[in-house]
Amino acid sequence: MPIDPHLAETLATVVDEGTLEAAARRMHVTPSAVSQRLKQLEQQVGQRLLVRAKPVRPTEAGQAVVRFARRYALLEHETQAALGLEAQGARPRITIAVNADSMATWFLGALAEFTRTRDVQVELLREDQDETERLLTSGAAMAAVTSSPIASPGCAVAPLGSLVYVAAAAPDWWRRWIGDPATARTQQVGADVLARAPRVDFDRSDELQATWLRERGVDPALTPRHFVPSTHDLAVAVEQGIGWAMLLVHQAEPLLETGAVLPLGGQPVTTPLYWQVTRTPSTLLEDLSRSVAEAAQRSLRRPS
């Protein structure tokens, strides 16, 4: 039996909102009506689609139906526009998973270019670049900036370039843990210092500082760390001497020039990024991909 797109849209709304009650409020129907639609949809496909926890979560089959609902809504809107018909319902919504550093630096420029002439709603889901692929697979996102060069099921992938980070710390940090900051340009920071001096991580999934420490022969699991979940505020935390961290080159350069932070040496850490997007014959997604590629070309280290 064909999948009813309107029932599939109900499932996607429930997944978005987290509960049947919240989805019912958004759809202006009763929770009982939402429950009946979900039951009807599960009978159509012959599989369980939703785990009714709090928040609800789609099963693997439910994820496939949610992806279908997202694509159908986009294609329906574009078909109405191509036929010169007045669009029914809300503007289409494109959900994009983006890592925090891209969002804070180059990605919003791509989004500004894209939305300037397109009648569309965009929702950004902030997630680590190693985790954004999961949102594609679940159907929560139609496109993502990821660290994986392997295309997710039903997606196309293209290299964007790389973010480059350098290790830095404030003079106050250097003075406390090493000594005279005047020696920073000539003195190597030893493994013994790095093992006991605090670092700043974005969150618990942040591997940048850990990667750099391992290259210096230090076990990152044994070192103290603070958490600052903001790209901008993390740089401020380093400047204030709270801990050392890997800073984006464009953040670090002006601070290094003024002496607000000092280099810790070692090799920069480079994070390759890739653009993954749902394989749907959509002019909106094609235009979005073009805007993202152009912004990445201007801002990221070119892919090798």
Rank of each mutant, 00 (worst) to 15 (best):
P153W: 04
S205K: 10
T231S: 12
S162D: 01
R176F: 14
A140V: 05
L213V: 02
Q188K: 15
S148I: 02
R176C: 10
Q188I: 13
T211N: 12
D206Q: 11
W177S: 00
W212L: 00
R199L: 14
A197V: 04
R225I: 09
A156D: 15
P149N: 09
D201K: 14
A210V: 06
A170H: 08
R176K: 14
P220T: 02
T211L: 14
I150G: 14
P220D: 04
S138F: 13
L160D: 00
M142D: 04
D172V: 14
D201A: 09
W173K: 04
L194Y: 02
A182L: 05
I150M: 12
A184L: 05
A141F: 06
P198I: 11
W212F: 01
D192K: 09
Q187N: 05
V200W: 09
A140G: 08
W174Q: 03
P171E: 02
A144T: 01
M142Q: 15
S138T: 07
G154Q: 11
D180K: 05
I178L: 08
G217L: 13
R214C: 05
D201P: 05
G139A: 15
A167F: 14
W212S: 00
F227Y: 12
Y165M: 09
T186F: 13
A143L: 09
E207G: 09
D203F: 07
D192V: 10
V164G: 11
G190A: 10
V189S: 01
R216Y: 11
P229D: 09
L160K: 00
G179A: 01
A144R: 03
W212P: 00
Q209N: 13
F202V: 01
D192G: 08
P159Q: 07
P224H: 06
T183S: 15
P229V: 12
A170E: 07
S138H: 10
A197R: 07
S148A: 12
D192W: 13
R199M: 13
A191Y: 04
D233Y: 09
I150C: 11
R185I: 14
D172G: 14
P171K: 01
V166E: 04
I178V: 08
A141N: 04
S148L: 03
H232L: 13
L163H: 10
E207M: 13
P149I: 04
S148G: 06
R216T: 03
P149W: 10
D233L: 13
V189F: 04
H226I: 08
D203C: 03
A191V: 02
Q187P: 03
R204K: 09
